[in-house]
Amino acid sequence: MLKIENLHVRVAGKEILKGLSLQVNAGEVHAIMGPNGAGKSTLGNVLAGRDGYEVSQGSVTYDGRNLLELEPEARAAAGVFLAFQYPVEIPGVNNTYFLRAALNAQRKARGEGELDTMQFLKRVREKLAVLHLKDELLHRAVNAGFSGGEKKRNEIFQLALLEPKLAILDETDSGLDIDALKMVAEGVNSMRDPGRAFIVVTHYQRLLDYIVPDVVHVLADGRIVESGDASLAHKLEEHGYAWIAERRVAGAA
């Protein structure tokens, strides 16, 4: 589904991703762990199409297409979704209006019929229930005045509503208490499907107790330096990222 080869990305003139390669197949859940500043969010932003990220080398193929040449909205319509590490507050834009505009824009771009108000609201109610979010959030402006936990749950609610094929979760777990974490995990697990893939970026192994990944990668200094099964997350938790660095030094020697 997604194939990233030797990706080099510069931000504000500084090379952040330095030859990252990653392949994700439909139905898989990949976890990406790594220290602060490693380039995890940069990867998510590049995949979603944010401006200001200059790809100097490498390629990203998604469903057989060059993902990098698509506008962000076209990527969304093609099924790419990024749950933001820091969801943006947009005062003055009503949440329901926004969600409906987003869903219908995607459906239209895919040649599907737009949902009418009744159909839309029915779908919204179903998904809200899974995440234990209050109806009241729908009447507020997008993320405006939401608590940290509400913002993160709102990201997963959008994920549930938009039903993307490739979902990238950027530290959705940080700042969540254990109950909210379980709700988020439940939301994600209920969406696991042979046709859908997830990239779960996290700092802590805790989330991976609830969303069990097929593959765990360690991203450090702009590259994937280690990949393994779910047990890798536990080793990291035990030994810290320094352990990876030491192994790399040892391996190089």
């Binding site: 969304a76 947009i90 824009a105």
Partner: peptide, 13 residues
């Protein structure tokens, strides 16, 4: 940032 957020959800520029 808000513009990108909206676009990332499928809303055209």
């Amino acid at each position: 940032r808000a513009l990108f957020y909206l676009r990332s959800r499928g809303i055209a520029l």
